[in-house]
Design a protein around this nucleic acid. Sequence first.
DNA 1: TTTTAGTTTAACCATCTGGTTAATATGCGA
DNA 2: TCGCATATTAACCAGATGGTTAAACTAAAA
Lengths: 197, 197
Amino acid sequence: MNTEEKIFNAARIVFQKKGFAGTRMQEIADEAGINKAMLHYCFKNKQLLFEAVFMNAFSQLAPQINAIFNSDETVFEKITRFTHSYISFVLLNPFLPPFVIQEMNNNPEFVKTFFKNKNTPDPSQLIDQIKKEIALGIIKPVNPKQLVLDIFAMTVFPFAAQMMVKGILHVSDSEFNQMMEERKTTIAEQIINSIKK
Amino acid sequence: MNTEEKIFNAARIVFQKKGFAGTRMQEIADEAGINKAMLHYCFKNKQLLFEAVFMNAFSQLAPQINAIFNSDETVFEKITRFTHSYISFVLLNPFLPPFVIQEMNNNPEFVKTFFKNKNTPDPSQLIDQIKKEIALGIIKPVNPKQLVLDIFAMTVFPFAAQMMVKGILHVSDSEFNQMMEERKTTIAEQIINSIKK
DNA sequence: TTTTAGTTTAACCATCTGGTTAATATGCGA
DNA sequence: TCGCATATTAACCAGATGGTTAAACTAAAA
């Protein structure tokens, strides 16, 4: 692993744990086991290092999601596949959703430019497909955007609000993971069941 | 409005917008229109001022939620009432959910003490009631904790991940609020529909 | 009016933080 | 081996940041 990779991984760990504002460049350097000046040598400044980490996080998720959203499967198949593979992925990267959500909420102006230029999840094709399947009588008449929001809510929320969920439901880390394993299949069944005619 | 209230309100605004780490004491002082030394005179230090704001945020939500969870209504009535009143409340305080979730994720050790001592949302009675109604054949056999999690996910997520939701679904602020108005009734119907026998 | 307790402020301080610099180390082609 | 570009570091810097202090202001009691 070269220095740039060491820095990047260290930055990912620290940024995802403490957020942009809470992160100290020195802490990243310590985590990487190198001198602080190397951070600036390799990534210019804190903002650019952060953006590299943030973009990378998003670019891990976006293609996976879009591949599912834009495939030629049915809506039901897409819902099943999305929830399953998203939860599988996030169980391996549990800090990702809170990180992305937090930094988006804290940098609203950055979000606007971000969603115009970059490779982002785009459910517009799925939304069109939902409209079609409603017209065909496969799906009950629902607001397609609300349906997409429901799918994200059911899959992403438990990870986004991890600490609060564990606190309120009084579940341990392992119980939490077990619940998420269960959700891999139950969420899709539930959503499909509530919209199929 | 006395000085302490001015500071508290200013702190609430700044903390909820920028989070604990991103907040500068000077910015709170400016927002309150007073000298920075007054912050320390009234609230000792940043941590205590933050905790005052955080506890206040939670203490606005917790009793409302618990009043519903622990009433003598049916599960279906509770779901209907919770989703409706939570969304109504949060539409007036849209910064609350991201703020609470973010700070909980960033201070895991604080969360543990917090959930032991303080007045927090507690769904344990509701969970027992769900078990009973399942036994009575009113509700399909589901994991009660998963059901509670679903309810929170459907209501809280859109606010918690506000910026991301707006970005991904390409909705404006007013469209977003309109969607939330719609959700006040639809979520409950949907959840109830998926669990009633 | 004087005293006194509580408020409020300007100025200050130690420390932290992101970032720079100049010097040194490393490795590799000639 | 030498020369040179790249990689790495220790030391440093200016500005920001949380927090302190001592003085000044205010208002009500004595």
